[in-house]
Write a protein that binds this DNA or RNA. Structure first.
Lengths: 138, 138
DNA sequence: TATAATATCTCTAGCGACTAGAGGTTCAAG
DNA sequence: CTTGAACCTCTAGTCGCTAGAGATATTATA
């Protein structure tokens, strides 16, 4: 039985975030002391670790709710959990593709004019103003 | 002189977003008709295009404000604008690195157990629960 | 010119996922 | 038993929009 501060330290999740997770139903309501303070067990730490890990992998809170529900119904869970993970993977890959094209354009833009050469036409600014100077259609 | 709807169509930026940009000072207040409706010129379209493009490149609204200010002071602008672009580039590259490691882990997780094999232990769920099953330390 | 349809106006509230702060209570160490 | 750190709830703020209500303006047609 440890306090929310201890849990926060162990799980590396901020205290207000823990309370927030409880408030939206992602964490079950914690047990309380006489004086109304939250007390947790190893189980709570595990659950919070799960949530943290999933968040770091980019799952939305909603998806995590689904995953937690799946944990409670082990029959169909594997198929659906794998599907959720694959959806997440597709989203991550799409995001990477998008960022790569941004990277290219930004790299091109920022090497376009050197900082030393203080000319009247800054290539960065004109590249931003004028989409024609850009390869991609985002 | 065209309406906000026309501007929206031309710039491919939604009407509420245009009003929002005006409200936070990113766009100068538009001229108005007798009946209080906004009217724009080609200049407004250009500015909005600049903003849109910069947003698509991931610049924050705050950075865009800076860029717009720089446009008005062409003397030091090139150096500072290039710096902003480079900062943005670094952020994009960091984000890509992070997403790549997520991609790897998600790929590993979601191929770990096939959906058909409905076992009691779903690898997706245990991988999420147990950070030790993961290569990275995020 | 009258009317109807469409477009616009302002204002408020909501989204996701937290974060920060005020003002008050409880716990644990000395 | 006192003190100070940790905890409590509640409200409001963050960012970058988006949605809706209810009122007014413009434009096209009859």
């Amino acid at each position: 039985m440890f306090s929310i501060g201890e849990l926060s330290k162990q799980a590396k999740v901020k205290i207000p975030t823990i309370r927030y997770y409880e408030s939206i139903g992602l964490l079950a309501p914690a047990e309380r002391t006489e004086g109304n303070q939250r007390r947790y067990t190893a189980e709570g730490l595990e659950r919070l670790g799960f949530i943290k890990h999933a968040r770091e992998l980019g799952f939305s809170v909603e998806s995590i709710s689904s995953l937690i529900e799946l944990q409670e119904h082990p029959d169909r869970s594997c198929y659906e959990a794998t599907e959720l993970a694959e959806t997440q993977l597709r989203a991550v890959r799409a995001k990477i593709r998008q960022l790569r094209s941004l990277e290219q354009e930004l790299a091109r833009i920022s090497t376009g004019c050197s900082g030393d050469d203080v000319s009247e036409n800054c290539y960065v600014l004109s590249a931003l103003a004028n989409h024609n100077l850009c390869n991609k259609d985002h």
